[in-house]
Computed example of a mutant assay.
Amino acid sequence: MQMTTLGRSGLEVSKLCLGTMTFGTQTGVEDAHAQIERASEAGINFLDSAEMYPVNPIRAETVGRSEEIVGDWFAKTGRRGDWIVATKHTGEGQKAVRDGAPITAETIPAAIEASLKRLKTDVIDLYQFHWPNRGSYAFRQNWEYEPWPGDRAATLQHMHDALGALRDEVVRGTIRHFGLSNESTWGTAMWLKVAEETGGPRVVSIQNEYSLVCRLADTDLAELMVNEEVGLLPYSPLGAGLLTGKYQGGAIPAASRMDLNGNLGGRKSERVFPAVEAYLGVARDFGLDPVRMALAWTLRRPFVASSIFGATTLEQLEHLLPAAELVLSDEVLKALNAVHHAHPMPY
Protein backbone atom coordinates (compact mmCIF):
# COMPACT_ATOMS: atom_id res chain seq x y z
CA MET A 1 0.00 0.00 0.00
CA GLN A 2 1.40 3.39 -0.97
CA MET A 3 1.81 5.87 1.88
CA THR A 4 1.92 9.67 1.89
CA THR A 5 2.42 12.50 4.37
CA LEU A 6 -0.79 14.35 5.20
CA GLY A 7 -0.11 18.05 4.61
CA ARG A 8 2.47 19.32 7.08
CA SER A 9 1.18 17.08 9.86
CA GLY A 10 3.89 14.45 9.72
CA LEU A 11 1.17 11.79 9.70
CA GLU A 12 1.95 8.95 7.29
CA VAL A 13 -1.36 7.78 5.85
CA SER A 14 -2.25 5.15 3.29
CA LYS A 15 -3.34 6.36 -0.16
CA LEU A 16 -6.67 4.65 0.46
CA CYS A 17 -8.82 5.71 3.42
CA LEU A 18 -11.61 3.53 4.79
CA GLY A 19 -14.87 5.48 4.94
CA THR A 20 -17.38 4.48 7.60
CA MET A 21 -20.53 6.45 6.80
CA THR A 22 -22.60 3.29 6.17
CA PHE A 23 -21.52 1.57 9.40
CA GLY A 24 -24.72 1.14 11.37
CA THR A 25 -27.24 1.38 8.52
CA GLN A 26 -26.34 -0.36 5.26
CA THR A 27 -23.36 -2.09 6.89
CA GLY A 28 -23.95 -4.12 10.02
CA VAL A 29 -21.54 -4.44 12.93
CA GLU A 30 -20.08 -7.80 11.93
CA ASP A 31 -19.42 -6.72 8.35
CA ALA A 32 -18.06 -3.35 9.48
CA HIS A 33 -15.56 -5.02 11.79
CA ALA A 34 -14.59 -7.44 9.03
CA GLN A 35 -13.94 -4.46 6.75
CA ILE A 36 -11.67 -2.82 9.32
CA GLU A 37 -9.74 -6.08 9.69
CA ARG A 38 -9.38 -6.64 5.96
CA ALA A 39 -8.42 -3.04 5.24
CA SER A 40 -5.71 -3.25 7.88
CA GLU A 41 -4.41 -6.49 6.37
CA ALA A 42 -4.18 -4.70 3.01
CA GLY A 43 -2.00 -1.95 4.51
CA ILE A 44 -4.67 0.73 5.01
CA ASN A 45 -4.03 2.68 8.22
CA PHE A 46 -6.44 5.61 7.76
CA LEU A 47 -10.17 5.69 8.51
CA ASP A 48 -12.69 8.50 8.38
CA SER A 49 -15.89 8.95 10.36
CA ALA A 50 -18.14 11.77 11.60
CA GLU A 51 -20.31 12.41 14.60
CA MET A 52 -23.46 12.46 12.44
CA TYR A 53 -22.78 9.11 10.70
CA PRO A 54 -24.29 6.78 9.60
CA VAL A 55 -26.14 8.15 6.58
CA ASN A 56 -28.79 6.72 4.24
CA PRO A 57 -30.64 8.05 6.13
CA ILE A 58 -29.35 10.42 8.82
CA ARG A 59 -31.53 10.03 11.91
CA ALA A 60 -31.24 11.49 15.38
CA GLU A 61 -31.48 8.00 16.89
CA THR A 62 -28.47 6.72 14.92
CA VAL A 63 -26.19 9.77 15.19
CA GLY A 64 -22.77 8.60 16.37
CA ARG A 65 -23.37 4.93 15.67
CA SER A 66 -20.56 4.70 13.09
CA GLU A 67 -18.05 6.03 15.60
CA GLU A 68 -19.36 3.56 18.19
CA ILE A 69 -18.86 0.62 15.84
CA VAL A 70 -15.27 1.70 15.17
CA GLY A 71 -14.70 2.21 18.90
CA ASP A 72 -16.07 -1.23 19.70
CA TRP A 73 -13.52 -2.75 17.29
CA PHE A 74 -10.71 -0.81 18.99
CA ALA A 75 -11.89 -2.03 22.39
CA LYS A 76 -12.27 -5.62 21.21
CA THR A 77 -8.90 -5.86 19.45
CA GLY A 78 -6.72 -3.38 21.34
CA ARG A 79 -5.45 -2.17 17.96
CA ARG A 80 -6.22 1.54 18.12
CA GLY A 81 -2.53 2.18 17.47
CA ASP A 82 -2.79 0.62 14.00
CA TRP A 83 -4.97 3.45 12.72
CA ILE A 84 -4.90 7.16 11.93
CA VAL A 85 -8.41 8.20 12.95
CA ALA A 86 -10.29 11.12 11.43
CA THR A 87 -13.74 12.33 12.39
CA LYS A 88 -15.83 15.46 11.92
CA HIS A 89 -17.82 18.10 13.81
CA THR A 90 -21.23 18.53 12.13
CA GLY A 91 -21.87 21.90 10.50
CA GLU A 92 -24.84 24.22 10.86
CA GLY A 93 -28.29 23.10 9.74
CA GLN A 94 -28.21 19.33 10.37
CA LYS A 95 -31.25 19.01 12.62
CA ALA A 96 -30.34 15.51 13.79
CA VAL A 97 -27.23 16.85 15.56
CA ARG A 98 -27.63 19.50 18.29
CA ASP A 99 -30.80 20.67 16.51
CA GLY A 100 -28.77 22.16 13.68
CA ALA A 101 -26.54 24.38 15.83
CA PRO A 102 -23.51 25.99 14.14
CA ILE A 103 -19.88 25.18 14.87
CA THR A 104 -18.68 27.45 17.69
CA ALA A 105 -15.89 27.63 20.22
CA GLU A 106 -18.47 26.41 22.73
CA THR A 107 -19.64 23.35 20.76
CA ILE A 108 -16.12 22.12 19.88
CA PRO A 109 -15.01 20.73 23.29
CA ALA A 110 -18.28 18.87 23.90
CA ALA A 111 -18.36 17.46 20.36
CA ILE A 112 -14.78 16.22 20.72
CA GLU A 113 -15.50 14.63 24.10
CA ALA A 114 -18.53 12.83 22.67
CA SER A 115 -16.56 11.52 19.69
CA LEU A 116 -13.72 10.36 21.95
CA LYS A 117 -16.19 8.44 24.11
CA ARG A 118 -17.83 6.75 21.12
CA LEU A 119 -14.49 5.95 19.47
CA LYS A 120 -13.15 4.62 22.79
CA THR A 121 -9.91 6.51 22.35
CA ASP A 122 -8.00 9.27 24.10
CA VAL A 123 -7.09 11.23 20.97
CA ILE A 124 -8.41 12.01 17.48
CA ASP A 125 -5.62 12.23 14.90
CA LEU A 126 -7.49 14.48 12.45
CA TYR A 127 -10.45 16.58 13.57
CA GLN A 128 -12.43 18.17 10.73
CA PHE A 129 -15.27 20.66 10.36
CA HIS A 130 -17.89 18.92 8.19
CA TRP A 131 -18.99 22.07 6.34
CA PRO A 132 -18.72 25.82 7.02
CA ASN A 133 -21.36 27.73 8.96
CA ARG A 134 -21.60 30.36 6.23
CA GLY A 135 -22.70 27.86 3.57
CA SER A 136 -20.90 25.91 0.89
CA TYR A 137 -20.60 25.14 -2.80
CA ALA A 138 -20.68 21.44 -1.87
CA PHE A 139 -23.61 19.02 -2.03
CA ARG A 140 -24.62 20.26 -5.52
CA GLN A 141 -25.15 23.76 -4.12
CA ASN A 142 -22.55 25.15 -6.54
CA TRP A 143 -25.41 25.98 -8.92
CA GLU A 144 -27.19 28.27 -6.44
CA TYR A 145 -24.82 29.17 -3.58
CA GLU A 146 -24.22 32.93 -3.40
CA PRO A 147 -21.37 34.11 -1.17
CA TRP A 148 -22.78 37.62 -1.16
CA PRO A 149 -23.68 39.44 0.93
CA GLY A 150 -21.20 37.80 3.29
CA ASP A 151 -20.20 39.06 6.70
CA ARG A 152 -16.41 38.88 6.39
CA ALA A 153 -15.73 40.23 9.85
CA ALA A 154 -18.06 37.72 11.50
CA THR A 155 -16.57 34.85 9.49
CA LEU A 156 -13.01 35.78 10.46
CA GLN A 157 -14.01 36.20 14.11
CA HIS A 158 -15.56 32.73 14.04
CA MET A 159 -12.31 31.34 12.64
CA HIS A 160 -10.29 33.06 15.38
CA ASP A 161 -12.61 31.72 18.08
CA ALA A 162 -12.76 28.19 16.64
CA LEU A 163 -9.00 27.93 16.20
CA GLY A 164 -8.55 29.11 19.77
CA ALA A 165 -10.79 26.29 20.98
CA LEU A 166 -8.98 23.79 18.76
CA ARG A 167 -5.60 24.99 20.03
CA ASP A 168 -6.79 24.32 23.58
CA GLU A 169 -7.76 20.79 22.55
CA VAL A 170 -4.35 20.18 20.95
CA VAL A 171 -2.70 21.31 24.19
CA ARG A 172 -5.09 19.11 26.18
CA GLY A 173 -4.11 16.18 23.96
CA THR A 174 -7.58 15.31 22.65
CA ILE A 175 -6.82 16.09 18.99
CA ARG A 176 -3.60 16.17 16.98
CA HIS A 177 -4.41 17.96 13.71
CA PHE A 178 -7.16 20.01 12.07
CA GLY A 179 -8.80 19.62 8.69
CA LEU A 180 -11.69 21.08 6.71
CA SER A 181 -14.46 19.51 4.67
CA ASN A 182 -16.69 20.93 1.94
CA GLU A 183 -14.73 24.19 2.05
CA SER A 184 -13.93 26.70 -0.67
CA THR A 185 -10.63 28.14 -1.84
CA TRP A 186 -11.25 31.46 -0.08
CA GLY A 187 -12.39 29.74 3.10
CA THR A 188 -9.33 27.50 3.21
CA ALA A 189 -7.04 30.45 2.56
CA MET A 190 -8.61 32.37 5.45
CA TRP A 191 -8.28 29.43 7.85
CA LEU A 192 -4.59 29.26 6.92
CA LYS A 193 -4.16 33.02 7.37
CA VAL A 194 -5.87 33.10 10.76
CA ALA A 195 -3.82 30.12 11.95
CA GLU A 196 -0.63 32.03 11.09
CA GLU A 197 -1.90 35.08 12.97
CA THR A 198 -3.03 33.24 16.09
CA GLY A 199 -0.84 30.16 16.32
CA GLY A 200 -3.93 28.01 16.00
CA PRO A 201 -3.63 24.59 14.39
CA ARG A 202 -2.87 24.85 10.66
CA VAL A 203 -5.19 23.16 8.17
CA VAL A 204 -3.54 19.95 6.95
CA SER A 205 -6.31 18.59 4.75
CA ILE A 206 -9.61 19.32 3.06
CA GLN A 207 -12.21 16.64 2.47
CA ASN A 208 -14.31 17.56 -0.57
CA GLU A 209 -16.19 15.53 -3.14
CA TYR A 210 -13.90 14.66 -6.04
CA SER A 211 -14.21 12.14 -8.84
CA LEU A 212 -14.22 11.82 -12.62
CA VAL A 213 -17.76 13.24 -12.60
CA CYS A 214 -17.13 15.94 -9.97
CA ARG A 215 -13.95 17.89 -10.65
CA LEU A 216 -14.73 21.13 -8.81
CA ALA A 217 -11.37 20.94 -7.01
CA ASP A 218 -9.32 21.04 -10.20
CA THR A 219 -8.82 24.80 -10.53
CA ASP A 220 -8.35 27.41 -7.78
CA LEU A 221 -8.57 24.93 -4.91
CA ALA A 222 -5.97 22.66 -6.52
CA GLU A 223 -3.55 25.57 -6.83
CA LEU A 224 -3.99 26.45 -3.18
CA MET A 225 -3.58 22.86 -2.02
CA VAL A 226 -0.37 22.29 -3.98
CA ASN A 227 1.25 25.57 -2.94
CA GLU A 228 0.12 25.54 0.69
CA GLU A 229 0.66 21.81 1.30
CA VAL A 230 -2.95 21.00 2.13
CA GLY A 231 -3.88 17.47 1.12
CA LEU A 232 -7.18 16.66 -0.57
CA LEU A 233 -9.15 13.75 0.87
CA PRO A 234 -11.67 13.00 -1.89
CA TYR A 235 -15.00 11.57 -0.83
CA SER A 236 -17.37 9.86 -3.25
CA PRO A 237 -14.48 9.02 -5.63
CA LEU A 238 -16.90 6.68 -7.43
CA GLY A 239 -19.54 9.37 -7.82
CA ALA A 240 -21.78 7.83 -5.13
CA GLY A 241 -21.67 4.57 -7.08
CA LEU A 242 -22.49 6.05 -10.49
CA LEU A 243 -19.03 5.24 -11.89
CA THR A 244 -19.49 1.54 -11.10
CA GLY A 245 -22.09 1.44 -13.87
CA LYS A 246 -24.65 -0.23 -11.64
CA TYR A 247 -27.26 2.48 -12.26
CA GLN A 248 -26.97 2.51 -16.06
CA GLY A 249 -30.03 1.68 -18.14
CA GLY A 250 -32.38 2.71 -15.36
CA ALA A 251 -31.20 -0.01 -12.98
CA ILE A 252 -31.70 0.58 -9.26
CA PRO A 253 -30.21 -2.37 -7.31
CA ALA A 254 -32.07 -3.28 -4.14
CA ALA A 255 -30.64 -1.66 -0.98
CA SER A 256 -28.33 0.52 -3.08
CA ARG A 257 -27.87 4.18 -2.27
CA MET A 258 -30.22 5.23 -5.08
CA ASP A 259 -32.79 2.75 -3.81
CA LEU A 260 -32.58 4.36 -0.38
CA ASN A 261 -32.50 8.07 -1.22
CA GLY A 262 -33.77 8.35 -4.79
CA ASN A 263 -31.62 10.96 -6.53
CA LEU A 264 -28.24 10.30 -4.89
CA GLY A 265 -28.33 13.61 -3.12
CA GLY A 266 -28.92 15.52 -6.36
CA ARG A 267 -26.34 13.63 -8.45
CA LYS A 268 -28.94 11.85 -10.59
CA SER A 269 -29.51 13.86 -13.77
CA GLU A 270 -30.19 13.38 -17.46
CA ARG A 271 -26.60 14.35 -18.23
CA VAL A 272 -24.80 12.11 -15.76
CA PHE A 273 -25.66 8.76 -17.35
CA PRO A 274 -24.17 9.59 -20.80
CA ALA A 275 -21.07 10.87 -18.99
CA VAL A 276 -20.78 7.65 -17.00
CA GLU A 277 -21.25 5.61 -20.16
CA ALA A 278 -18.36 7.46 -21.76
CA TYR A 279 -16.11 6.70 -18.79
CA LEU A 280 -17.21 3.06 -18.87
CA GLY A 281 -16.27 3.08 -22.55
CA VAL A 282 -12.71 4.14 -21.66
CA ALA A 283 -12.48 1.25 -19.22
CA ARG A 284 -13.69 -1.18 -21.89
CA ASP A 285 -11.32 0.21 -24.52
CA PHE A 286 -8.30 -0.30 -22.27
CA GLY A 287 -9.39 -3.52 -20.59
CA LEU A 288 -9.73 -1.93 -17.16
CA ASP A 289 -12.14 -2.51 -14.33
CA PRO A 290 -14.16 0.76 -14.23
CA VAL A 291 -14.36 0.88 -10.43
CA ARG A 292 -10.62 0.48 -9.98
CA MET A 293 -9.92 2.88 -12.84
CA ALA A 294 -12.04 5.64 -11.29
CA LEU A 295 -10.51 5.21 -7.84
CA ALA A 296 -6.95 4.96 -9.19
CA TRP A 297 -7.48 8.19 -11.15
CA THR A 298 -8.09 10.13 -7.93
CA LEU A 299 -4.97 8.64 -6.33
CA ARG A 300 -2.80 9.90 -9.20
CA ARG A 301 -3.79 13.55 -8.80
CA PRO A 302 -0.84 15.52 -7.33
CA PHE A 303 -2.86 17.24 -4.60
CA VAL A 304 -4.64 14.09 -3.35
CA ALA A 305 -3.31 12.75 -0.05
CA SER A 306 -5.69 9.83 0.42
CA SER A 307 -8.93 8.86 -1.30
CA ILE A 308 -11.87 7.90 0.91
CA PHE A 309 -13.83 4.91 -0.31
CA GLY A 310 -16.94 3.43 1.23
CA ALA A 311 -17.90 -0.20 0.86
CA THR A 312 -21.31 -1.46 1.90
CA THR A 313 -20.03 -5.03 2.01
CA LEU A 314 -16.74 -6.84 2.51
CA GLU A 315 -16.99 -8.12 -1.07
CA GLN A 316 -17.09 -4.54 -2.38
CA LEU A 317 -14.04 -3.68 -0.31
CA GLU A 318 -12.13 -6.64 -1.76
CA HIS A 319 -13.00 -5.49 -5.25
CA LEU A 320 -11.72 -1.96 -4.59
CA LEU A 321 -8.38 -2.80 -2.98
CA PRO A 322 -6.37 -3.45 -6.19
CA ALA A 323 -6.98 0.16 -7.25
CA ALA A 324 -4.19 1.19 -4.88
CA GLU A 325 -1.60 -0.46 -7.12
CA LEU A 326 -3.19 0.34 -10.48
CA VAL A 327 -1.08 2.64 -12.66
CA LEU A 328 -3.02 4.39 -15.41
CA SER A 329 -1.13 4.97 -18.65
CA ASP A 330 -0.80 8.37 -20.29
CA GLU A 331 -3.15 7.10 -23.01
CA VAL A 332 -5.81 6.25 -20.43
CA LEU A 333 -5.42 9.64 -18.75
CA LYS A 334 -5.73 11.40 -22.09
CA ALA A 335 -8.92 9.47 -22.85
CA LEU A 336 -10.38 10.31 -19.45
CA ASN A 337 -9.65 13.99 -19.95
CA ALA A 338 -11.34 13.86 -23.35
CA VAL A 339 -14.50 12.52 -21.68
CA HIS A 340 -14.30 15.29 -19.08
CA HIS A 341 -14.12 17.91 -21.85
CA ALA A 342 -17.14 16.38 -23.57
CA HIS A 343 -19.17 15.93 -20.36
CA PRO A 344 -18.16 18.65 -17.87
CA MET A 345 -20.11 19.08 -14.65
CA PRO A 346 -22.71 16.37 -15.30
CA TYR A 347 -24.45 17.07 -11.96
Rank of each mutant, 00 (worst) to 15 (best):
V63P: 05
R59S: 13
V70N: 03
Y127W: 07
A110C: 11
G43H: 11
E51V: 01
I36R: 02
Y127V: 02
M52P: 13
E92I: 06
A114Q: 13
E37Q: 11
E61Q: 12
E67W: 04
R80I: 01
R38T: 12
S66H: 12
L116H: 00
D99L: 15
V63M: 12
I112W: 05
T121E: 01
D72M: 00
P57W: 03
H33Y: 02
E68Q: 03
E51G: 00
R98Q: 14
I36W: 00
P54R: 12
Y127L: 07
E51Q: 13
G28K: 07
D99E: 15
T87L: 08
A75M: 11
I58S: 09
E113T: 14
L126N: 05
Q128C: 02
G64P: 08
E106N: 14
D31A: 06
K117M: 06
F74V: 08
R118A: 06
N45C: 06
H33I: 00
A111G: 14
N45H: 10
V123A: 02
G28H: 04
R59W: 12
K88A: 02
S66T: 03
E41D: 13
G78A: 00
I112F: 06
K117A: 13
V70P: 04
R65K: 15
P54Q: 12
P102W: 12
N45D: 06
A86V: 05
T90Y: 09
L116D: 01
P54L: 12
V29Y: 00
K76C: 03
A96Q: 15
